[in-house]
Every structure is written in C-alpha cells, then in structure tokens.
Design a protein around this nucleic acid. Structure first.
Lengths: 205, 205
DNA sequence: TGTACATCAGTGAACGCGCGTTCACTGATGTAC
DNA sequence: TGTACATCAGTGAACGCGCGTTCACTGATGTAC
C-alpha cells in the first residue's frame, strides 16, 4: 500500500494499470477510456485530470513499457559473468520474455500505431532501448574481422526484426499456430544460425 | 469494364476494394462497414446481401490476400533459371514486395486479429502460402549435410519471422524509422548472413 | 489546537457522433409462357 | 415478340450502443492564521 493522495490515491497509475489489463484481455482494439475508468472505479471524466485524452494514456503506457524493456535488456546483457556471445544470446531470450510478461506494454509500444516522434520523452526512452541492443552488437562485433563486420546498427536491427517477427507470428494465434515449434526455440535457433553466419560461432561447434 | 450484374455490377468485390483502400489510408483500425459501403456508392445495409457482417468482409480480404501472396511467392520461386539459393533469395525479396504492394491485404492477413482457424477456406489458403515457403526451404536443405540440417519447417519459420519483423518495424513509422537502412537491404543482408550460418554460402564469398 | 479558506480530484449529466445491424419496402432485372 | 410474374439487390429509416469529450458542480483534502 502506497501513501494515498487526495481522493483516489494514485489514479494516474491506476488508469494505466486497468488500461494494461484491458489490452491484455481484449487485444489492441479492446481498450477504451470509458472502460479503463470504470475498472479504476472512477467516472470517465476523471481521466481528464491526468491525461489530455485517450492517446496520451497510450503514450504513457508505451513510455513505461520502453523503460521496463530497456532495463530488462540491459540487466540481461550485463548480469552474470558471461562472454559477449553468451550475453548476446541472453539478451535475445530477454526480448521474448518481455513480450510474454508485459503483453499490454508490448502492444502499446509496437502495435498501437502511436508515432514515437509524437513525444520527446517517448522518443528518448525508445532510443535508450535501442541503444542497449546496439551496444550489445558493437561489443560482439569486435570479435568479427573488421573487413567482414556489418554496421552494428544493422546487426542489431536484424536481431530486433527477427525477435519481433517471432513474437508477432508465433506467440499469438496467427499463421504460425500450426507450426509445432515453441517460440523460444525458434528464436534461439535462428539467432544461433545467424551468429554462425557472422563467424561468431565455430562452424562445427 | 466487366459485365455488370443486377444493379451495381459486382458489389461484393467493390466492397472488398473500398475496404482495402480504407485500410491502406487509415490503418487497420480505420476500416468501417459504413464507410466502405459509402465509398462503393451504396447504403450500409446493402453490405448484408454479400457478407454476414464486418468480420466476414475482413476474412474475404485476407483470403484474397493469401491467394495473391502464395501466387507471388510461388512465381518468384519458380521463375527464372536460378539455382535453389538464388531462388530462395528472390522469394525473400518477393515477401517484402508483397507487403509494399498490397498493404491492405497484408494488414487483413497479419494484423486484423482474425483467427485463421475461423474459416476453412482461409485456413487452406494460408497453408498453401506457408507450403510454398516450406518447399523452398526443403529444396535448399538438400544442400546442407543431413546431420546439421534443421527441420525445413523451422528453417522457413525463421525466414518468415525475419521478413515479417522487417515489414512491421522498418517499413512503417515505427521503432526503426530512425535506422537509416532501407528495409530491402536489411532483409537481404539478414538472409545472407543466415544462409551463411547454414553453410549454404561459402564463408569467403 | 481550532477555524476559515483555497485548491483541485472526481462527479454526474449531457453532447454529438458514427458504429454495426434489422427491417419492411421497392423497383430493376431475368424468366416462363 | 409481348406480357405477367418471380426474384432479389439495394433502399431508407430506424434501433440501441458505447465511444471520447465538455462542463458546471461539489466536497474532501491541505494550508494559513
């Protein structure tokens, strides 16, 4: 129990929380201001004391999502006494773990259609998340001979695209629902093959 | 000009077409039955002569999308006198080309939230599209020593996920809008590295 | 400690809107004789 | 070829609904004296 403020306590965060639950339950479209307010035990009009409108609430969720995401990725990357390679693979796994554990945030970040440029803070937080991935790529790149080294930003873009694709196609009831591979295995094996292609894993190991 | 039927001619397809335009213009959420009917020059109620409701219209669009998609991929794969490797890369490029040329279909297929299992025809068409990719993977797999060959279905799932991820993140105004790599380059280089990891491209070529 | 006052989070009612869907209908088209 | 009839694609009006948003308000909380 946190310290309570005026009437509700912390309505702003309570609204974020019920919006998250709504998104998780009903998908990206299933979120409405009215319903989120109702779940927080409050009149729809009360929302406007804390947000300028529907979009700003979604932006707030995306912001919190990017913050958690960046922390999680950074922690996965730096924790443990792993080499650059193992650290990179841990980070890949952390991506999927995030998508699973924070589906509402994930939707707000990647499927809600909000333009990241719309808000400076959001932009900054998204950049930070991207930097974590890119730094991991830079670190790992040092083990590749310079002449066959791809730009680290491209490197990390590849991994991000691959991870996102796995999440979208194979962790929901989409195209891949027939395929009998757990998303985790799918992503791990793909990253393994990719890193081998970069010469970072010995062909025979 | 096709042969005209009763009053409108071919309202069913006209509705599909205006729905597609709407999705392309306003995103996945921006499509409504009422607006699609209006654009087709018809009352909203007329829609119900051809579809049981909103969802059935979206399903029809997805079906047509999967049919075009499978044709396109198949054509890309079989056309030209290319080796298995070149054919595979052409197919990857065809994926992106489809997403660009048929954005409305793409959205209906992958972002509309309709469960493929909802309609047997849809399911069948989606399977066909998937089979094209998997067959390409099977063919290419023959060049990999059996003991290090991944299951072809996994192989093709990797490529599909990668392609989808590139489309979602880097062809819209999303996270990747900052990254200065054209999606086509991103996908091509990623597939190249991946195939090298499978031992299908010589390390030094 | 007690009282008067200012603040402002949340209320409740109302709004205009566009949605998906229904229904009895009408009138153009195709068909049988 | 001409007429009578059946079909059925599209109409127009209406529905109930929930949405996002606004507004004047109220009453609990925090603050000054």
């Amino acid at each position: 129990m946190r310290k309570r403020g005026y009437h509700h306590g912390n309505l702003r965060q309570a609204l974020v929380d019920s919006a998250l639950k709504l998104i998780e339950e009903k998908g990206p479209t299933g979120f409405t201001l009215a319903e989120a307010a109702k779940r927080a035990g409050v009149t729809p009009a009360a929302v406007y004391r804390h947000f300028s409108g529907r979009e700003e609430l979604i932006i707030e969720i995306a912001k919190q999502g990017y913050a958690i995401f960046a922390d999680l990725m950074e922690y996965a990357y730096t924790s443990g006494n792993q080499g650059a390679l193992a650290a990179f693979e841990t980070t890949g796994r952390a991506y999927l773990a995030f998508a699973r554990k924070y589906p509402g945030h994930y939707v707000a970040m990647f499927e809600s259609g909000i333009p990241i440029a719309a808000d400076p803070d959001l932009n900054h937080l998204a950049s930070r998340a991207q930097d974590v991935l890119t730094n991991a790529a830079v670190e790992l790149s040092k083990h590749i001979p310079p002449e066959k080294r791809p730009p680290p930003a491209m490197f990390s873009a590849h991994i991000w695209a691959l991870s996102h694709g796995v999440v979208e196609l194979y962790t929901r009831g989409g195209v891949g629902s027939r395929a009998p591979f757990p998303p985790e295995d799918l992503l791990e094996s793909a990253i393994g093959i990719y890193l081998r292609g970069l010469g970072l894993i010995e062909p025979d190991s």
